[in-house]
């Protein structure tokens, strides 16, 4: 079994935290204030750090405690800080022309969760039989990843695309924590480093976008076709 040493109390905590992370991605879908998105992303990262610590502590994976600290620092503090800085420099605070209204985005998100649940149910059944941990892990993994893609599709602001990418990565991290806490430490470590690079790189592009095009609305990025 994937997580043999988890007690039922830890199970309950893991369930709870995974649900919290999922709910926080709905906060991002339901609001058009980008600052709220960043706050929700930071909160989601803290929740993931907590999850990492809980699983590491109760499952005796000391590496996960290191990951928890790194997650808190990098995903929870440094990345949100960089994002806020990008936001300030670009002088923008909300999505002015969303593709869908917030309510509709949330409904789409709910559909994503249903889809994820269905897939997780079938996949989990086939792989492990009836394991509630696997079901919750797969559901939250697929749901958060799908919501991240939804944000990429539904949002127009460049910064929101960046957040969508980060949410996808958070989803993958969440799922890997619950399903395979024994995943080699190195991978998590380099993924964190990679996220930092992406944010820095895209941050620079946002600045140039602002300078060259005068807008960070991705609809103005329509010159290259055919």
């Amino acid at each position: 079994m994937p997580t043999p040493s988890l007690t039922s109390l830890t199970h309950a905590i893991v369930d709870l935290i995974a649900m919290c992370a999922l709910l926080l991605s709905f906060v991002m879908l339901g609001s058009h204030w980008i600052r709220n998105h960043i706050l929700a992303f930071a909160a989601q990262s803290w929740v993931l750090a907590a999850l990492s610590a809980v699983i590491g502590f109760s499952g005796h994976y000391p590496a996960l405690l290191v990951i928890a600290v790194l997650t808190l620092l990098l995903r929870g503090l440094i990345l949100p800080h960089l994002l806020v800085r990008i936001l300030d420099r670009a002088h923008l605070d909300r999505e002015f022309a969303p593709v869908l209204q917030p309510a509709m985005s949330v409904v789409m998100g709910a559909l994503c969760v249903l889809l994820a649940y269905g897939a997780a149910l079938r996949l989990g059944q086939a792989v492990t039989g009836q394991s509630p941990v696997v079901r919750i892990g797969l559901t939250s993994l697929l749901a958060v990843v799908l919501i991240g893609f939804l944000m990429l599709v539904l949002r127009r602001e460049a910064v929101s695309h960046l957040l969508g990418l980060l949410v996808i990565e958070n989803g993958i991290f969440l799922g890997s924590l619950v399903l395979m806490p024994g995943l080699p430490l190195l991978l998590e470590f380099v993924v964190l480093f990679d996220l930092l690079l992406i944010v820095v790189a895209l941050g620079m592009f946002v600045r140039h976008l602002r300078a060259e095009i005068g807008s960070t609305d991705s609809r103005s990025l329509d010159r290259l076709v055919g």
Partner: peptide, 8 residues
């Protein structure tokens, strides 16, 4: 910049 942005 548009191309690089889409690419990343």
């Amino acid at each position: 910049i548009e191309a690089a942005w889409k690419y990343v």
